[in-house]
């Protein structure tokens, strides 16, 4: 619910509060129990507004089943005769494809059906790429070198007269074991 605040027309949004839920409790209970006749149009409008903003109350009411079996406005319609059903089935059997195709399932159906193989293919591609670009250790005679994929320099001690600033251009950072000397 948005409220206007002062002549500056500042809008602020208020979250649904538990007080709102408590205020709507009677109306929501009546709806859940199918007691529609106990409610007024204004009460239903207020309940509708609350339900469309409160996920908790919407979920609770959503899980309920209508009590339409005892509603006098609900009468089971007369169903078609057996012969009509047989004819309907003959039409359905004749016109349905022999095998359902995902291409007729619409975009959502295609994505749902293709999700697992697509995810598996993507995982294979990532494994191949990371294997191809992970440089093997280089044996230099003095020590093994491997290109680091991600380096964060937390602190750097530099010698006198040398700046710790890194300028433009290629930069090589040597990360040495304490007992090793830097190459010249």
């Amino acid at each position: 619910m948005a409220l206007r605040d002062g002549p500056a027309a500042q809008w602020r949004m208020t979250a649904v509060t538990t007080r709102d839920c408590a205020r709507q409790s009677d109306a929501l209970t009546a709806l859940r129990e199918g007691r529609f006749d106990a409610l007024t149009p204004d009460a239903v409008a207020a309940a509708e507004a609350h339900l469309n903003h409160c996920a908790a109350c919407a979920d609770k009411l959503g899980a309920a089943r209508p009590v339409s079996a005892s509603d006098p406005l609900v009468q089971a319609p007369r169903q078609p005769a057996a012969a009509q059903w047989r004819r309907a089935w003959a039409v359905i059997a004749d016109r349905s494809p022999s095998v359902s195709s995902i291409w007729r399932a619409g975009r959502a159906g295609i994505l749902r059906s293709a999700w697992t193989p697509l995810a598996a293919a993507a995982a294979c591609v990532m494994m191949v790429v990371s294997w191809r670009f992970a440089a093997p250790p280089v044996e230099s005679g003095l020590w093994s070198l491997a290109a680091a994929g991600d380096v964060r320099v937390l602190e750097m001690d530099v010698g006198e007269g040398v700046t710790a600033m890194v300028g433009d251009g290629p930069t090589v950072v040597w990360i040495l074991e304490p007992e090793m000397d830097a190459p010249s």
Partner: peptide
């Protein structure tokens, strides 16, 4: 009902 079942069987693979 006929149309709905035909459509359902057509797109059942996406269900």
């Amino acid at each position: 009902v006929q149309d709905a079942f035909i459509k359902a069987f057509e797109s059942l693979a996406g269900f």
